[in-house]
């Protein structure tokens, strides 16, 4: 169980001469549910973009499943079993829900049709609301449904690790109460998850471990259970109040 799936070592990400991420090291073990919290602009999204190959890092290394993936373009990284649900969801709004799901399985090509159909059934069971929406344009879905579609689409590449960037972005608490249990369920089923979340109160409750990022670096990390009681966390991210 200590098998390390994703290892990020001394990662730096720069836009021009501006360093968004100064030095970040973190890891996700196989089967783990890891959270990253931190305020806006702390560099969380930049780390995720570097891991998923959307942006090349300026220094450091990223290893996934024993293979170095630093600087590889995202389409190669996905092929290795790392799927990302990006910040802002980025569903293909003018294509149908079904087309979005098919694109999620793009790398599986035309092979194993029956297995693909079975997997599609399973993700639709996870998010039953999508089933009725299959022929609808994805852009017409509500924010919560779009997030579900984005996750479902990510799952269809059969990833070993699923990264979700800002799950709660623009979503009502009611919908979050629906989404988080699904993630827990997926994780229980064996999927490793790396969740980036601004709403610390939620993230700390569902994850095993959490990294706290600030100003382009990791401020602290530890068991989520421990962090949830940490006064510094309470202070900064939970706004001076008890989280429970």
């Amino acid at each position: 169980m200590t098998d390390v799936l994703l290892k990020v070592n001394d990662l730096k990400v720069a836009y021009g001469r501006i360093e968004a991420v100064r030095s970040v090291s973190m890891e996700v073990r196989r089967g783990e549910f890891v959270g990253i919290i931190g305020s806006n602009g702390a560099g969380k999204t930049s780390v995720m973009r570097a891991i998923s190959g959307v942006k090349s890092p300026s220094a450091g290394s990223i290893t996934f499943d024993g293979v170095e993936i630093t600087g590889l373009p995202s389409h190669t990284v996905v092929a290795k079993g790392l799927a990302m649900v990006p910040e802002g969801r980025h569903i293909f709004g003018d294509q149908t829900v079904e087309d979005n799901l098919i694109l999620g399985a793009y790398l599986r090509g035309g092979r194993a049709k029956t297995q693909l159909a079975a997997d599609t059934e399973r993700v639709l069971d996870l998010f039953p609301v999508l089933r009725a929406r299959l022929p609808q344009a994805a852009g017409s879905l509500s924010g919560g449904e779009q997030q579900m579609l984005a996750i479902a689409r990510g799952l269809l590449s059969r990833p070993t690790l699923l990264i979700i960037d800002e799950l709660s972005l623009g979503l009502a608490p009611k919908i979050l109460d629906l989404l988080f249990p699904v993630l827990t369920e997926l994780n229980r089923a064996g999927l490793s998850i790396l969740l980036v979340e601004q709403m610390a109160s939620y993230a700390l409750q569902v994850t095993h471990r959490t990294y706290v990022m600030e100003n382009g670096g990791v401020l602290m990390h530890g068991d989520s259970e421990t962090l949830i009681g940490d006064p510094r966390i309470l202070d900064t991210y939970l706004g001076h109040r008890e989280a429970s």
């Binding site: 399973r122 699923l162 109460d177 988080f180 089923a189 064996g190 939620y202 989520s224 939970l238 429970s244």
Partner: peptide
């Protein structure tokens, strides 16, 4: 701040064998 009180439990510390989906 969200409800800050989810009606769900933390995932079990002991992880089960990987199963099919994803």
């Amino acid at each position: 701040f969200g409800r800050g009180n989810l009606s769900l439990k933390r995932p079990d510390r002991l992880l089960p064998e990987p199963v099919e989906i994803g």
